[in-house]
Write a protein that binds this DNA or RNA. Sequence first.
RNA 1: GGCCCCGUCGUCUAGUGGACUAGGACGCAGCCCUCUCAAGGCUGAGAUCGCGGGUUCGAAUCCCGCCGGGGCUACCA
Length: 465
Amino acid sequence: MAVSERSPVRVRIAPSPTGFAHLGTASTALYNVLFARQRGGTFVLRVDDTDVERNRPEYEALIYESLHWLGLDWDEGPDKGGADGPYRQSERLDLYKQHAVRLLADGKAYKCWCTREELEAERKQALAEKRAYKYSRRCLLNPPAGRSEFTVRFQVPGGEVTFNDMIRGEMRFDAELMGDFIIVKSDGYPTYQFASPVDDAVMMITHVIRGEEHLSNTPFQLLIIDALGYPRPVAFAHMPLILAHDGAKMSKRKHPETNLALYREQGYLPEALINYLALLGWNPGTSQEIFSFDELVRVFSFERVQHAGARFDWEKLNWINGEYIRALDDSELARRLRQFVPELDESTICRAVPALRTRLPKLAAAREYLDYLWTEPQPPDLNPEAAERVRSAIAALREAPWEPPAIEEALERAVEASGAGKGKFYTPIRDALTGKKVSLPIHYTLALLPRDVALARLLRATAER
RNA sequence: GGCCCCGUCGUCUAGUGGACUAGGACGCAGCCCUCUCAAGGCUGAGAUCGCGGGUUCGAAUCCCGCCGGGGCUACCA
């Protein structure tokens, strides 16, 4: 029996705090939030921290931080509370224990005293005989005596497990092929395959939206829910995986783009990342590419979610991010730029913004355009003609009002008088000011520097050496 | 090995039997604009629709086989 279609939608994400906040977590969170907002439902954040070895509280904080940065907020969670708390699995151990005891009493689970070595041997043997491995049920049929350390295994009843996936339709799995799996580890902690379905059932989760790596875990979890007599979630949705650029699964070690903190540090706008993530795995069916969060809530649907994994592409992200940056107004762009150029005062940033806007695929790129403001470049080696042009620029600049338009006018008069082209005229100036081949337009490059500093750099470049 | 998911330009994708000389976007190339770099405008290259068989008057679209990629197969989640 399924939870009624009319019951309020409840969805959840269940990240594990075992490392930095992951891109996949953001992606899954996004689709959950979209669906919840669309249906007026509740979005739950549950922390799946049953891996005692790898969990760290600071990683949990990182998850909150990253999701908040992205503007994704939850309705219930460890930090917010809610009627179905606690929301940390490590604080729900009694609950899992009760359920395990119930399954044991009902004869739907049994204790297993096999050692890891014995199990490993079973697996190896199956492999050698080219047989699909399935636990032998030794401890159910003929348990060894005199052992104290045990796990609890679920006795798979066999048959067939079917469920509805909102993306892939009716899914069908043969439970005869599934071995009896461990639901309680020897340290007393539940396994993911047990804690997750128990919580989903008890928290009355109606739609389980998660990554495709969980597709084949679903029948295991459904078997648990059925055995416990709980209603099943109405539906599942298994989102296509985000692949690395080389087509492999993203790994934390090999692929820095898995780390959410990176996007913030590099100056990707959260709304741009959200937009990109939405498009990676879903398609609106129109040519629209830029979506606000509210638009996404309106048009998102699981019917248009891709079935195949999508490769992560920095170029496309950069483009989308650039679109968002260009759409920002002056004061907002200046505000967001602040933390990326702490060397500069407010007014300098504000004056740079109009020239910066079309040049930034990400906010951190502003540093390359502006670092000459706090770093003195090497004086260039100018040929006599270039030095002469710089001298005439100095003369023209002495009485010009120190603003981009006035500077541009003064310079253009000097260019005309010199008979040279703008290129020949401006290049040595740019070089003297920044030491680079690329900069903001020359009048901005000058105006952002205090006049005396700018003139000093130009003067120095004309000096005989 | 077993089970499951998937396979259209380099990448993300549109496409659900005829309107497909396979469309769009990113990227790439050229031109225009231009002091450099961007942005913007225009133009262009780029996909025998993984392969092989069917079905059909007609297939990227339906069926079968194969190949390739991914996931699960843990006392990780």
